[in-house]
Design a binder for these strands. Structure first.
Length: 852
RNA sequence: GGGCUCGUGGUCUAGCCGGUUAUGACACCGCUCUCACACAGCGGAGGUCCGGAGUUCGAAUCUCCGCGGGCCCA
């Protein structure tokens, strides 16, 4: 059966997608094979699979398919990280409500419904991209099966003292009305005013006069001579009239403003540090919604911006404010809604961070690229307080705890009660005080509490299966090192005292064609589906493989995808030509066959090493280079005359060589091009290529001798081809006669490829050998002669070339006589003809004489 | 402000534990419709490897300084 001329990616990819069975990729919990569990990132179910996710998944799939072919028991699970604000916002939009208008249950139900729709859509994208996902290991964090584990992890960590409740300053988003973790704070530079105030006896400068009501102290630098007398005295806060102490602290910058700062609870993180250090009282001037409290007197009920405006105008009027300056400022924002955060002291749940544990565990993991580990280390070193895990939201894992209505004591659930929602269920036992009236905790868990046990979940934690932690691989983007990597390491260590994975593989970000991060506003946004429709999943996957080195940012370029589809077409043509000519019956190889087989084994060796090192770009480029250059442009051209010729040993050898090459290449391509490789393999064998083994290297077939002989034949042939091109002849033109002076013993393929009669001649032709140039070998000279190497090289170039006949050259350098043997230089020779009507070509250590 | 990272022909990119004619793709210019492929083949032009200093016999590759991008953060 002849293949169609063009490779039709649309039809064939759809065909294979619908043919493949999910069970091909199931992880076998009872297998004897070595395990390879991949702790894949659970995407947020927005409904659209982003191109950055797609890159990440391509890397994962390359690894998963490769490892499977290498005999590993691979788990490529698919998780969905459902909880969080974006879905809550979408649901409010979709139903035209705010979450307070419906019951918690009803709101949660709406969120679940939207998430399910989105997951269904995204599953389709995943399938279409050809990912070998193990759907028997899918997990959905909003389902009881998963969030029950999240709750159990909470209870376990609470019971061993890793989770506690405390009044503590937290980053607070007044718009979302929730606490957020440091990892959720984003920074942006804005400009503000520095206001100079008459502050009792002192003058202070502040950017936040609206926090005057929350002022609990005034600080100066202990070495600042201007203010030494004031330290430990009291001053009266203007407008509000309460007295505060003047304290000395070396962290006050005497050159900033007036050198006097007011400490408020809380204006920024520095205030928190001072507050703790000097045991200052707490004055809450801002409430959870970002409004001023009664402490603010007449400003009560105003928003912070409004209050700031009002208080400034009042103080200007009364002369308290005497100067204003512009000041650039970095403001902390809520990463979801970009509202400026406040620091409020609230009762929250925290997870203890043990920096040592995290750093030690991070050291047990192999980081690829290794320098990415530094990011985790730096982040760990800058943590100022524990991880705040409570959120004031609805669509999230409920915190399994209650408060006794009588004594107020907190009751945390027992593991066997879980999963549950404390706002819907009462605890099955009464409080220590005897009361059985409880109020369920309404706070919910940070979504990172869900996803940071993904490694544990997929490895069989709290299941009927054996625990297989650590997983082998964690693939993820470097942008979430400080969150997902950090929290996973923390939790794995805390819950099981183990590292979560052996290796973490970081991928870069996908940039748009203009080199900037993709965003809808920049109009450089591309979605994977768009690429698939135009060029197919395999072409897209090629872009992922060769667009850049693993770990670096990668620009999405359409031309890379186009180049990918061209390679598919080229490879298709190769297979289309080969199919009628292949045979799996071995025969005795000719020199050019041996050359190809040697190169092929070298390719297998190289690609195996590179895949083991996760160097997808290099692997794929090596395969493509082999197929295009070595196989198509050279081997096939050279073997054609045998393939088209009469039956016999030579023909059979070419048929077999071609078979081996096609079969091997299709297997090497399988991890990258699942559809294409399956299609071509289906024309050779009846089984799926994705159930085959990765090719073995046959070391005995890697033969430098065979390669150099083949290289000579190749060089000679292309020299003849070039000769024809330069003389304006068609490449299939027949030349009168060609004489080749060479060490090769078989010129039949050359004859075939050049369509001419070839006469092989031994030894040196009847020409004069004239040395033309001496080329010094700096590698040898440098090592041997060090600082003299330069002058020796100069002398060599100018030496009398006839001297080299005896195999060495003696030269004078700086009054010293040095004899250099053949390892130190090479002689370029020119062959001159003795008056014959011929053209001479030099190629592959041979002389080609073409009769005119 | 700090950390990490990158800066290679027109564009993108490999090489970067020192010694290669500096890799490949796209674009460009010739020639060829050759029996798998014109989404091709063959040939060609095009690079002070960001700038400067240093280490070295020798640096795209190592060190330092500077300039310029990117990312993460304060």
């Amino acid at each position: 059966m002849e293949l169609p001329k063009e490779y039709d990616h649309n039809t064939l990819e759809e065909k294979w997608m619908n043919t493949w069975q999910d069970s091909m990729y199931y992880f076998d919990w009872d297998s004897n094979k070595p395990q390879f569990i991949i702790d894949t990132p659970p995407p947020y179910p927005t409904g659209n699979f982003h191109i950055g996710n797609a890159l990440n998944w391509c890397y994962i799939d390359f690894v998963a398919r490769y490892k499977r072919m290498r005999g590993f028991n691979v788990m490529f699970p698919e998780g969905w990280d459902c909880h969080g604000l974006p879905t809550e916002v979408k649901v409010e939009e979709k139903h035209g409500i705010t979450k307070s208008q419906v019951s918690r249950e009803e709101f949660r139900r709406m969120c679940v419904e939207l998430t399910e729709t989105n997951i269904t859509r995204m599953r389709k994208s995943l399938r279409r991209l050809g990912f070998s996902i193990d759907w028997s290991n899918e997990y959905i964090t909003m389902e009881p099966a998963y969030f029950g584990k999240t709750q159990r992890s909470f209870v376990q960590m609470h019971d061993c003292g890793m989770i506690y409740q405390q009044n503590h300053p937290v980053n607070w988003c007044p718009r979302c009305e929730t606490a957020i973790a440091f990892a959720e704070v984003e920074y942006d530079s804005r400009s503000t005013h520095l206001n100079y105030l008459n502050f009792d006896k002192l003058k202070i400068a502040t950017t936040r006069p609206e926090l005057l009501a929350a002022c609990v102290a005034v600080a100066v630098n202990p070495d600042d001579e201007r203010y030494g007398d004031y330290v430990n005295t009291e001053v009266k806060v203007p407008v509000f009239g309460h007295n505060v102490r003047v304290i000395a602290d070396k962290n006050v910058d005497p050159t900033f403003g007036t050198g006097v700062v007011m400490i408020c609870t809380f204006g920024d993180k520095q205030d928190v540090r001072w507050w703790v250090e000097h045991s200052l009282p707490l004055r809450k001037a801002i409430d959870k919604t970002g409004k001023m409290t009664e402490l603010a007197g007449k400003y009560k009920g105003m928003g912070t911006t409004e209050c700031k405006k009002a208080i400034i105008s009042d103080m200007k009027e009364s002369g308290l404010l005497y100067k204003q300056e512009d000041l650039p400022q970095n403001v902390g924002l809520c990463w979801r809604c970009k509202t400026a955060i406040e620091i409020l002291s609230e009762r929250q749940w925290f997870v203890k961070i043990k920096q040592e544990d995290i750093l030690n565990t991070a050291n047990e993991v192999t980081w690829i690229p290794d320098y990415m580990k530094v990011r985790l280390e730096n982040w760990t070193g800058t943590m100022e307080w524990d991880w705040c895990i409570s959120r004031q939201r609805i669509f999230a894992t409920p915190i399994p705890a209650w408060y006794c209505s009588d004594c107020g004591k907190t009751k945390v659930a027992k593991e066997e009660w879980l999963p549950l929602d404390p706002t819907q269920t009462q605890p099955p036992e009464s409080c220590e005080c005897g009361s059985s009236q409880f109020r369920g905790e309404e706070d919910v868990l940070d979504t990172w509490m869900d996803s940071s046990i993904s490694a544990l979940h997929v490895s069989g934690w709290l299941s009927d299966h054996p625990l297989l932690l650590p997983a082998q691989l964690r693939p993820q983007g470097y942008d979430i090192i400080r969150t997902w990597s950090f929290y996973t390491i923390l939790r794995s260590k805390a819950l099981l005292d183990k590292r979560p994975w052996d290796t973490i593989l970081l991928n870069g970000m996908v940039l748009g064609e203009d080199g900037h991060k993709m965003s809808k506003s920049r109009d450089n946004f591309v979605i994977p589906e768009e690429v698939i429709v135009k060029h197919g999943a395999d072409a897209f996957r090629q872009w992922a493989a060769i667009g850049g080195t693993t770990g670096s940012d990668i620009i999405f370029l359409w031309k890379d995808v186009v180049a990918g589809s061209r390679f598919l077409q080229k490879m298709w043509s190769i297979v289309r030509f080969s199919l009628p000519h292949i045979s799996d019956k071995p025969a005795s190889f000719t020199p050019i066959d041996l050359w190809l087989i040697s190169k092929l084994n070298r390719l297998v060796k190289e690609t195996t090493e590179k895949m083991d090192a996760y160097q997808f770009d290099e692997t794929f480029k090596a395969i493509r280079g082999f197929a295009w250059d070595i196989l198509a442009d050279n081997y096939i051209e050279l073997a054609k005359s045998r393939l088209y010729g009469e039956d016999g040993e030579g023909k059979q050898a070419a048929q077999y060589t071609l078979f081996v090459a096609i079969e091997t290449i299709s297997k090497l391509l399988a991890p990258f091009l699942p559809y294409f490789s399956e299609e071509i393999y289906s024309h050779i064998k009846q089984e799926s290529i994705h159930l085959q083994s990765w090719p073995d290297v046959n070391e005995s077939r890697i033969d430098a001798g065979a390669e150099s002989t083949g290289e000579m034949i190749k060089e000679i042939t292309s020299a003849i081809r070039r000769y024809k091109a330069e003389h304006g002849m068609p490449l299939n033109a027949s030349l009168k006669e060609i004489e080749i002076y060479s060490t090769i013993t078989d010129a039949s393929d050359i004859a075939g490829a050049s369509n001419s009669t070839i006469r092989l001649r031994p030894g040196t032709p009847d020409f004069e050998l004239v040395p033309r140039e001496i080329k010094p070998n700096m590698k040898v000279l440098g090592k041997t002669y060090r600082n003299k190497a330069k002058s020796i090289a100069e002398a060599l170039v100018n030496a009398d070339m006839k001297l080299s006949d005896i195999g060495s050259i003696t030269i004078q350098v700086e009054d010293e006589e040095i004899t250099l043997d053949l390892s130190c230089f090479t002689i370029e020779k020119e062959r001159l003809l003795k008056g014959k009507a011929v053209d001479i070509l030099e190629a592959g250590n041979s002389t080609i004489v073409i009769m005119r």
